[in-house]
Structures are given as C-alpha cells and as structure tokens.
Design a protein around this nucleic acid. Sequence first.
DNA 1: ATATCGATCGGCT
DNA 2: GCCGATCGATATT
Length: 170
Amino acid sequence: MLWGVIVETEAYSQSEAGCHGFKKRTPRNATLFGDPGRLYVYLTYGTYHCINIVTDKRDWASGVLLRAIAIPNENERIASGPGLLANRFGLNLTHDNSLISIENGLWLSKGSVSNDMKRIIQTTRIGISKAKNLPWRWYLQDSRSVSKRALGDRSPSLSKAWTPSFEKNS
DNA sequence: ATATCGATCGGCT
DNA sequence: GCCGATCGATATT
C-alpha cells in the first residue's frame, strides 16, 4: 500500500473563472460535473497529470486539486507538486472518474499529524491567470514536501495562518 | 484551418 | 527568471 500525507491543496468552484468548469461542460472536465467522491484527472501542458477530488453535488463543478503529498520513507520531494504526485501514485487519464473507496483500493482518511506540522497557511492559488486573488490554496507551513513555489513563498505578508473550522469548533 | 493558452516541471542563464 | 516539451480546449481567421 502506498500512502502519504496531503500537505498542499487548492480548491476550485464553478463560481469562479479559475475553474475548468467555469464556462461549460466538455469531455475533458465532465467528471468535475459528476458525483462527488471521485477522481478528476486531466492532462496539463500535454505532459503532466493533475489529480482532483470532486467535492460538490452533481452538475455543480467543483474540486480540490492535490498539489503535494509527503510520503514516509521516501524522498521528501518525490510528490512535491501536482504532476509529481500523479506520477508517483501512477495515476493517469485511465483513472479519471475513479470512485474513491476502500473497495477500490483508493481512499482518503483523516489521520493525525504531528504537532509541528499543524500550522496551515492559506494563500492564493498558483499557475493560473484567472481569479488569482482568491485565497484558495492551503499548505502545511513546516512541511518540506510542499510544491517548489510554496517552499519559496513563505512571506507572511501575503500569507496568513489558518485554522480548520472543524478544529475551532471541537 | 490556424494560433494561443494553460491548475507543470526540469534545466539553464 | 526564462524556456521548451507536448497536447487538448478554446479563440481567432
């Protein structure tokens, strides 16, 4: 079993221009409009795959892009970007629309993270030209497995600490 | 029909 | 910081 800790993500929603589903449904983004709990995989720049978790109800395009994963006992940079993590997990277009479930051998779980890895930075998304101002990227401040841009972009002026609401309320 | 643009990355200046 | 790889989707002629 190959597993890791998701250390960087971005959110996309049909309501904003950064989202593949902003304009209309196409063969490429169809999964994004489908049921939640599935993988939306697409080819970017003709060279790398990007992995999203479809998050919202059917017919409302939205998803969370997995940007970086820390894998225990492996090079800390092995999955430090959207394309890199897709490569490491062997995910490609054939996995588009795959159901996320234990039965399917592909799932997420809410694990525990060491105390020194709990600081979360919320800031703007990377590599897009539209809706750049939306602060919909999150990463673990102290992880060395975040994407290259996140490693260098740790200026507190543009970023701010963020606490997940489920922890605030618990 | 042709041109431009990406939710990227590694290599190079 | 800039560039090319490489291809599907979208914009333009």
